[in-house]
Design a protein around this nucleic acid. Sequence first.
DNA 1: GCTGCAATTATACACTTGCATAATTGCCGA
DNA 2: TCGGCAATTATGCAAGTGTATAATTGCAGC
Lengths: 208, 208
Amino acid sequence: MTPRRPQVRVGGEARRAALIEATLDLIAEGGSEAATVRAIAVRAGVTPGLIRHYFTTKEDLIAAAHEALMTSLTEASAASLDRLPDDPLARLAGFIAASVSAPVTDPRAVSLWSASMQQVARDPSMRSVHQATYLAFRDRLEGLIRDALHVKGRSVVDSRALAIAGNALLDGLWIEAGALPDHFAPGELKTIAINSFESLLQIEFAKD
Amino acid sequence: MTPRRPQVRVGGEARRAALIEATLDLIAEGGSEAATVRAIAVRAGVTPGLIRHYFTTKEDLIAAAHEALMTSLTEASAASLDRLPDDPLARLAGFIAASVSAPVTDPRAVSLWSASMQQVARDPSMRSVHQATYLAFRDRLEGLIRDALHVKGRSVVDSRALAIAGNALLDGLWIEAGALPDHFAPGELKTIAINSFESLLQIEFAKD
DNA sequence: GCTGCAATTATACACTTGCATAATTGCCGA
DNA sequence: TCGGCAATTATGCAAGTGTATAATTGCAGC
């Protein structure tokens, strides 16, 4: 007769967040199929039934986890801006560098992101979350670009196109860094990103 | 008493390829978890047991499907080069345009690619296949860049960096086109890609 | 025509999955 | 202090999973 597992009461938002965190951990490590209800429960130190108490269905939990991931990525990006200087050129350069360096360039994040991309392709609600996050990042980049060009006295012809291209460039480098972490020399991607933006915007950043 | 299903004997490589194709279809439509043994069998018009006759395990089949996908992508890229003109500048422009237009920019392909990215993160053999495919594409792009710069009489300082940046740019645009197909005006991404390469390489393509 | 063998179907099994439902437990307010 | 109620655990179930094994079928070579 195995004794009943003692309850550890947490309740409310904390437990909910713990379940989401466990879900993301499992997906990052083993893909969507690894995130079974039972595995999530074990990871969160909880009984499977409890999940049903916080999420009416597993699909619910997955969606919540996806949204949490996206907002955390967005917030990480916003937070990096807070630590940057005021000079528009240096701000843009710092933002670019942060986007292709650790901790943003993290295999776990890339794995989670690619896992979510699949579901984005077929779940409209996930697609709208993805689109909102994508646009938030791109709009931030576009603002930085406009400021940088303005301080150089340059007329901004099509900042939308520049932001799309710059965003694509950062995305591509970010993915490659995550997928083939050993393939690039340290700092190589950062240099490439900075140089590429100099070409795209036809400006020059101050050398550090 | 349901009658026994009539056999349709195919045998050998054809049936094997059909099973792989059914697997890829299902993964593209519903993610890895949709590719169950039974679903694959139905899709291929076959009985589940037959799969075991061609692949000793399901993992075997998945790996074979991944390799088939990668080689097909590589071959598609190589084939597009065959249809391009000889002039190096036009060749590069055509290659860029093809990389961000249909049929390369295909939701199915993007979905399959992101599905494989996940497994790349944790399966070393899949990672080596991914790396080989990535390098094949990038090397092709680097060659086109070198040719284009050479015909302009420009010294090629760091074609590796240019190829990495260009590849990242194309990847990023390709992914966004696949993830948010309705978000961009027709031809917008193509224009952005061409203009961006003009900036990156500091050249000008002939207007078409 | 027969026979042997590979290709194919059929059936079965043990295990996992998500979910429902009932039983317990701890805590908070009266 | 003692109900009451939300948080938690326990148990069970029907459906789906991969795989093993046996039974059939068609075809190729003699």
